[in-house]
Design a protein around this nucleic acid. Sequence first.
DNA 1: ACCTGAACACCGTTCAAGT
DNA 2: ACCTGAACACCGTTCAAGT
Lengths: 201, 201
Amino acid sequence: MPSKKYHHGDLKNALIQAGIEILSRDGVAGLSLRKVALRAKVSHSAPYAHFSDKQSLIAAISTEGFNQLYAELSAAIGERASSPEKKIFAAIKAYVTFALTRTDTFKIMFSGVIEKEKEYPAFVEVSQRTFRLVVDVVRECQRSGLLPAGQTELVAVSIWGQIHGIVSLALEGQIPHTVIDKKDVQSIVDFALGQLMALKG
Amino acid sequence: MPSKKYHHGDLKNALIQAGIEILSRDGVAGLSLRKVALRAKVSHSAPYAHFSDKQSLIAAISTEGFNQLYAELSAAIGERASSPEKKIFAAIKAYVTFALTRTDTFKIMFSGVIEKEKEYPAFVEVSQRTFRLVVDVVRECQRSGLLPAGQTELVAVSIWGQIHGIVSLALEGQIPHTVIDKKDVQSIVDFALGQLMALKG
DNA sequence: ACCTGAACACCGTTCAAGT
DNA sequence: ACCTGAACACCGTTCAAGT
């Protein structure tokens, strides 16, 4: 371990970690640069040596979140050479679990706080890599007749959008009680996906 | 018109209007109570006579947004006794248009800034009323065989979730360029819905 | 009942200065 | 190269005081 003196050693990553922790404790609204600095035990202006502004830190946190999501998705998909059906359901379960577990990280990843994506190539890279993972599973499902053929990327966006939408509405408390009181988010998502899959019984 | 003196007359609604305007100019991040007050030409503490805090103003803005969305959805659906298919596509087009036009109002409506819904009955009411509109159209589509029968509310949530998810991802710039460069949001949504509808040729 | 102005704690960001 | 501390403009919220 690096000796604790004037220079922190790895302040950049310490700030990202501190940010994730504050996010899970105080939520998106409670995330401030000054709190992050305090938690990392540096002065409130120290973060500016590593991040140009708050947006930049949020981009780094979002990138880290996407890396974790990617890892969990590929772990869920990759467990042995299972059937396309098992793979896609496992992937979706992992997505929902991620959203329900690391709620505020998930929210910030998709809260458009990153407007100028071009400035954050690492974020764009992992986000694209994650999408490709989904596209590959969708393609397998198409080949085995589980999903209608053609337009693989469009189908992937449709399915991803559906899961993402249902999860988002649930996180914002927008799903009517008449529905959410009877079924949990995972069940609703499974139902929705089942409808799509039913296309090819 | 009310004479402009010490008392504003209808400051409450003026603040909501000012908020919506600031939202469309400066975005969600640029919305502050002090700016709203300034725009309504009152002191920065005047809003507190009508709203307990910023959340409360946001709830009022969201409620107003939902009222507009409800109006546009029912206008789209209600135009003559058209077919269920026309109705559902018209409704979805209206939803997408609303999201793309009043982007920041849409975002704040679904940004979970309203955590304690119970405290905002007007918001809950219009939100439920809007959902019922969707449920009714879905039921019509089920009756005419466009959508699979049963579980009407679940089907409604699935479809609403899908539209909402695709639109949200688009607003956050998360749809990969390989897709969004070829098709606009409306087309992607139509494609997704077409997949669901295809269930019953 | 409705609004103002001073006050307080907190925030993002900058910058000269320290190590 | 990395970090501190003072400073500035802005913010949400409170409260005594004005009309």
